[in-house]
Nucleic acid binder design. Structure first.
Length: 593
DNA sequence: CAGTGAGCGAGCTTCCGCTTGACTT
């Protein structure tokens, strides 16, 4: 008789089946199998918030198969992902599958490698009810808040609208950024660049940095012109050369949020497209005679962890391809953020023998470019830091030179103006041979190649170039920056970032022009309505507070019913007493769209 | 008598998070 192992994902089931061999049947639950009913609240609020879980429509077949396989099995191992949601899935599966006598084991795979899977099988445990309860509190609170607020919007604004802990905070971010943009007052300022020549070529540009020990602050053309007049006939001295060695560290391997950001910046993919391409690479690509191969690890993750085997393989690859200098003595360790649930590894290529060059004919153009991005980022993350020498010239004026003879140019020590020029030379490329992270901001253009001069040299002024600038408003969110912000604030999970972007657009709360998000009139009206009455609910702090309480449930310090009651009570009270703006008023405002 | 319209009731919309196909455009 075989043993049964149940995991969440069918792709994972195939991999684990290969590892465990023919004594084991491996089945997948394909995510959650039970949930609250979609058509009603499904929570008995009066009766300790008792949830009414039902089989998710369409999942009957899966459950039937799991039951049948359980009856045929000698031992049952339930192995959903080792995180909060996974524990709840395990609990629901156990409830469906438990027989009279058979013992059910909970096992956790932290990574899907041969050694890790076999080791986990040797250490079976129990379902962690505290973790399950934390998930229940999360689920029930999200349902209560979402399903009580949304009908309010149907009545007051428009049918089909919705509000919730995650989407409404996302909309609020966009609305508030727009207000900052509107409130922004553009200010004029000027910069002055100068071209100098020393005892050796090349000539170089430097930027006016200080005036009388103060940072340069020129407001208008008149100011700029008068400074230029002063500078024109001065003598200049290279008073100091600063040399700094800097190490630049590679970025950690991808997690979902950073993959979506980089694919947006470098490949112009939407979050949705990125996830679709990644899913295809994960599930497997036909590679001619090799058959179907899963090319990357799981793409919905918030962990930077890398399997020891993969790390070792990367080091061997790097040494062979680039040489010993390119591997650091100790493999780097990248810390995950505190709230990460560490259910999966970081996103990396599964097999380093499939380079993107080697298999590019089997991939679509988009699959190929995403695979290359993941490949390079992972390999680079295991390489040595780059070494960069940064040189800064500090240049000071020595007055007008009137009455100072050419033989003693340094006789006037009174300096008013200080210029700076900086240039960097890459001494050792390290990981930068392969990969550098994209950026949302405009890079400093003031990086130049500097000549080999000596401290104390006099310099000849060749050109002066005053330039007009204007201060810029804070940038509107793009998909990349909004996902980044959501992730940093702990709003939403890897499996939902792309969906959140779709939801707030589908509801017409925000729209995208030129790849940038701005709120619609509807979005502003709904946001203000919600924020006015439920400020704390529409705030990042709400999720943070909830998260902290979920931790306490997992620690056994709090009961889940108490947590739900403490959050729900004040909210519901407020909802009951909320004097919402009259229907007429809201409608009139919306007519002006 | 037929046609019109006021008034009423029923049914619909919704959350977040986990996973893939099975559908349609």
């Amino acid at each position: 008789m075989k043993s049964l192992v149940i995991v969440e994902s069918p792709a994972k089931a195939r991999t684990i089946s290969k590892i465990l061999g023919k004594d084991f049947t491996v089945k997948a639950s394909v995510g959650h199998i039970k949930d609250l009913p979609a058509k009603e609240m499904g929570i008995d609020i009066e009766n300790n918030f008792t949830p009414n879980y039902i089989v998710i429509p369409g999942k009957e077949k899966v459950i039937k198969e799991l039951k049948k396989a359980s009856n045929d099995a000698e031992e049952i191992y339930i192995a959903p992902d080792p995180d909060r949601e996974g524990e709840a899935i395990a609990w629901h599966i156990a409830d469906e599958v438990k027989g009279k006598t058979k013992k059910i084991y909970r096992i956790k795979f932290n990574e899907i490698t041969r050694s890790a899977v076999l080791e986990s099988m040797q250490n079976p445990g129990e379902i962690d009810m505290q973790k399950v309860d934390a998930q229940q509190a999360r689920r029930i609170l999200d349902r209560l808040v979402g399903y009580e607020l949304s009908p309010l919007l149907w009545r007051k604004v428009r049918r089909g609208l919705s509000a919730g802990r995650v989407q409404s905070v996302a909309v609020r971010l966009v609305v508030e950024r727009e207000r900052e943009v509107e409130a922004f007052k553009q200010e004029e300022y000027w910069s002055i660049n100068a071209e100098f020549e020393g005892s050796r070529k090349p000539q170089f540009w430097a930027k006016l940095f200080k005036f009388n020990e103060q940072k340069v602050d020129i407001k208008n053309a008149d100011g700029a012109n008068s400074v230029v007049e002063n500078l024109k006939n001065s003598r200049y001295l290279l008073t100091k050369i600063e040399r700094k060695k800097r190490r630049r560290m590679p970025s950690p391997p991808f997690i979902t949020s950073t993959l979506q950001q980089e694919a947006s910046r470098k490949l112009r993919f939407t979050a949705k497209k990125t996830m679709m391409m990644a899913q295809q690479l994960y599930e497997g690509i036909e590679l001619g005679e090799e058959g179907s191969v899963g090319l990357i690890t799981y793409m919905r993750t918030d962990s930077n962890r890398i399997a020891a085997e993969a790390q070792q393989a990367a080091r061997e690859f790097i040494e062979k391809a680039y040489g010993k200098a390119y591997i650091p003595e100790k493999p780097p360790f990248y810390k995950s953020k505190a709230s990460a649930q560490e259910a999966h590894e970081a996103i990396r290529p599964t097999y380093l023998n499939y380079s993107h060059e080697a298999i590019k004919h089997y991939l679509s153009k988009d699959q190929s470019s995403l695979y290359k991005l993941i490949w390079n980022r992972f390999i680079a993350s295991q390489m040595s830091p780059a070494e960069i020498e940064q040189t800064t010239f500090i240049i000071e004026d020595r007055g007008q030179g009137l009455g100072v003879s050419a033989q003693s140019p340094i006789s006037n020590p009174q300096s008013q103006y200080e210029f700076r020029a900086s240039g960097s030379v890459v001494k050792f490329q390290g990981f930068m041979v392969l990969y550098t992270e994209g950026t949302d901001e405009i890079l400093d253009e003031n990086e130049a190649l500097l000549p080999a001069l000596k401290e104390g040299e006099t310099l000849r002024l060749l050109h002066l170039e005053p330039k007009q600038h204007f201060t810029q408003p804070p940038p509107r969110y793009t998909e990349a920056t909004l996902v980044k912000t959501l992730e940093e604030k702990g709003i939403g999970r890897p499996s939902t970032y792309a969906a959140i972007l779709s939801t707030i657009q589908d509801r017409k709360y925000v729209h995208k022009t030129d790849g940038k998000f701005a709120p619609t009139e509807l979005g502003i009206v709904v946001n203000d309505m919600l924020v006015e009455r439920f400020a704390e609910l529409m705030d990042i702090g709400f999720t943070a507070g909830m998260e902290e309480n979920l931790d306490h449930i997992e620690d056994g310090k709090k009961k889940w019913v108490k947590v739900v009651r403490d959050f729900y009570g004040p909210f519901h009270e407020k909802l009951r007493n909320a004097k919402m703006p009259s229907l007429l008023k809201v409608k009139r405002r919306l007519q002006r769209l």
